[in-house]
Simulated scan of single mutants.
Amino acid sequence: MRHNFGAGPCILPQEVFKQASRAILDFKDGLSILEISHRTPEFESVVEEAGRLVKELLNVPEGYSVLFLQGGASLQFAMVPMNLLGDGETASYLDSGVWAKKAIKEVPFFGKVNVVASSKDDNYSFIPKDFIIPEDSAYFHFTSNNTIYGTEMFEFPETKVPIVCDMSSDILSRVIDVSKYDLIYAGAQKNIGPAGVAVVIIKDEILGRIDRKIPSMLDYKLHIEAGSLYNTPPVFSIYVAMLNLRWLKSKGGVAEIEKENIAKAHALYTEIDRNPLFKGTCAVEDRSRMNVCFVMTNSELEKPFLKYVEENGIEGLKGHRSVGGFRASMYNALPITSVHTLIELMQEFEEKTNN
Rank of each mutant, 00 (worst) to 15 (best):
H3R: 10
F5Q: 08
A7I: 13
I11F: 06
L12T: 07
Q14P: 12
S21R: 07
S21H: 03
D29N: 14
E42L: 14
E48Y: 04
L58M: 02
P61C: 07
E62T: 08
G72T: 09
A73T: 15
S74Y: 05
S74D: 06
F77Q: 02
M82F: 05
D87T: 07
G88Q: 10
S92H: 09
D95V: 11
V98K: 02
I104K: 01
I104E: 01
V107Y: 05
V113S: 12
N114V: 15
N114A: 10
A117Q: 04
S125P: 12
I127T: 07
K129S: 04
D130G: 15
F131Q: 06
S137H: 13
A138D: 00
F140G: 01
T143K: 02
N146V: 15
T147S: 14
F154Q: 00
F154W: 04
P162E: 03
P162Q: 05
C165D: 00
D166Y: 03
S168T: 11
S173P: 00
S173M: 11
R174T: 13
D182F: 14
A186H: 03
N191M: 10
V197K: 10
V200T: 14
I201K: 00
G208S: 13
I210W: 02
R212W: 03
R212Q: 01
I214L: 08
S216L: 00
L218A: 06
H223L: 07
H223P: 09
A226Q: 03
L229K: 11
Y230F: 07
F236G: 06
F236L: 11
V240W: 05
V240S: 02
L243I: 13
N244G: 02
L248C: 00
K249C: 03
G252S: 03
A255T: 10
E256C: 15
K259P: 15
K259W: 12
A265R: 04
A265D: 01
H266R: 08
A267I: 13
E271Y: 06
D273G: 09
R274D: 05
K279T: 09
G280W: 02
A283Q: 06
V284T: 13
V284P: 13
E285Q: 09
M290S: 06
F294I: 12
F294P: 05
L306N: 10
K307W: 03
E311D: 13
I314K: 02
H320W: 15
H320P: 03
R321F: 15
A328V: 12
N332W: 11
L334V: 15
L334E: 08
H340G: 04
L342E: 04
I343S: 04
M346V: 12
Q347E: 05
E351K: 10
T353C: 08
